[in-house]
């Protein structure tokens, strides 16, 4: 039995790009009609290359950037209609872990101060704050002695633990992890990933895990959504996707993952051309200019995300 905790319907985000006095305003479609459902307790991975809108999607869900259109239903209610106070309440249940641990901790504040911030923002009684801070810093693998220090005294991995502790302070239900390990060394990456998995069990968390690193997503995700130019083009169970990707873009993406077995021969699909400009996307299927299986219909019609063999694919091939 899976209950959806987060449902995203036709989410769009356009950024105003050029505007002059005598000029038509032009927009960048960062997120273009995304439909996703995240079930309680699962980890949904979102992969895609740079600039495909995966981070913007994460920010839209927390309304750090205001979506242009669409619905974001968190536990059944559309948070886009929430007032300022309502959104403040909703933030208690959804927190974010950021990509760059060197930039997201205020250099002028002690860790104690940084971790207390969510408690102040959500009016947790003063008597409980200290205990919560001490408990949480130990949960993420640091100690009470670290609380009096400043962020610059920690290594990248430790800082990311502090970032996770901060997201965990309010015991949220959903954590949006925006490339939480991509700024870290590989050896530290696995520690942080294991920590995230332990926390998921302990606090029955739901993760929306945004990454460009396929091996990381393979390690942690239950289901994976592949994004291309602001759209979800394939959404499948992790095992299905990694065993047999269906969308040509997903196939090329997965063929780029290095294989540890030197005898295993795999065809490497190399794409030609660059990611098209999101301000002037191609007609039809957005991938058709780089696709090796391109048909005439691809140039004209936008493929809908439809169910194929127990997964969702947006391609005219199926």
């Amino acid at each position: 039995m899976t209950t959806p905790i987060l449902e995203i319907k036709n989410l769009q985000k356009r950024f105003l790009w050029g505007k002059g006095w005598f000029q038509e305003p032009s927009y960048v479609h960062a997120v273009n009609g995304v439909n996703l459902t995240v079930n309680e307790g699962e980890t949904l991975g979102i992969v895609g290359e740079s600039g495909c809108g995966k981070s913007t999607l994460g920010r839209c869900i927390l309304r750090l950037v205001e979506p242009t259109e669409g619905e974001i239903r968190f536990e059944g209610s559309d948070i886009r209609t929430f007032s300022k106070a309502g959104m403040h309440g909703a933030r208690r249940n959804m927190q974010m872990v950021f990509q760059n641990p060197f930039d997201t901790l205020n250099p002028k504040l002690t860790i104690q101060h940084i971790l207390t911030e969510p408690l102040i923002a959500h009016h947790i009684p003063i008597q409980q704050r200290q205990a919560l801070v001490e408990e949480t810093i130990e949960i993420v693998g640091l100690g009470k002695r670290h609380l009096a220090r400043y962020a610059h005294e920690f290594s990248g991995g430790q800082r990311q633990r502090i970032g996770i502790a901060r997201a965990l302070m309010l015991r949220p239900k959903l954590i949006i992890a925006d490339e939480p390990v991509s700024a870290l060394d590989v050896s530290i990456q696995s520690q942080i990933l294991n920590l995230l998995q332990d926390l998921q069990e302990q606090f029955s968390l739901t993760y929306l895990f945004i990454s460009h690193d396929l091996s990381v997503v393979e390690h942690i995700a239950d289901r994976v959504a592949v994004m291309y130019l602001g759209e979800v083009i394939e959404l499948a169970k992790k095992e299905d996707l990694f065993r047999k990707p269906m969308h040509p873009y997903a196939q090329s993406l997965l063929s780029a993952v290095p294989v540890s077995d030197p005898d295993e021969k795999r065809e490497r699909i190399i794409l030609t051309g660059d990611l098209p400009s999101p301000s002037n996307p191609p007609t039809g299927c957005k991938f058709h200019q780089r696709c090796w299986a391109c048909m005439d219909v691809c140039k004209k019609e936008v493929p809908a995300l439809k169910e194929v063999e127990g997964r969702m694919v947006a391609c005219h091939l199926y």
């Binding site: 927390l62 933030r91 927190q95 950021f98 930039d103 911030e117 923002a121 970032g163």
Partner: peptide, 13 residues
């Protein structure tokens, strides 16, 4: 900077 965005995501005023 990132920490201002983090503060906003936390819900600080």
């Amino acid at each position: 900077s990132g920490y201002v965005e983090a503060s906003r995501s936390i819900g600080s005023s």
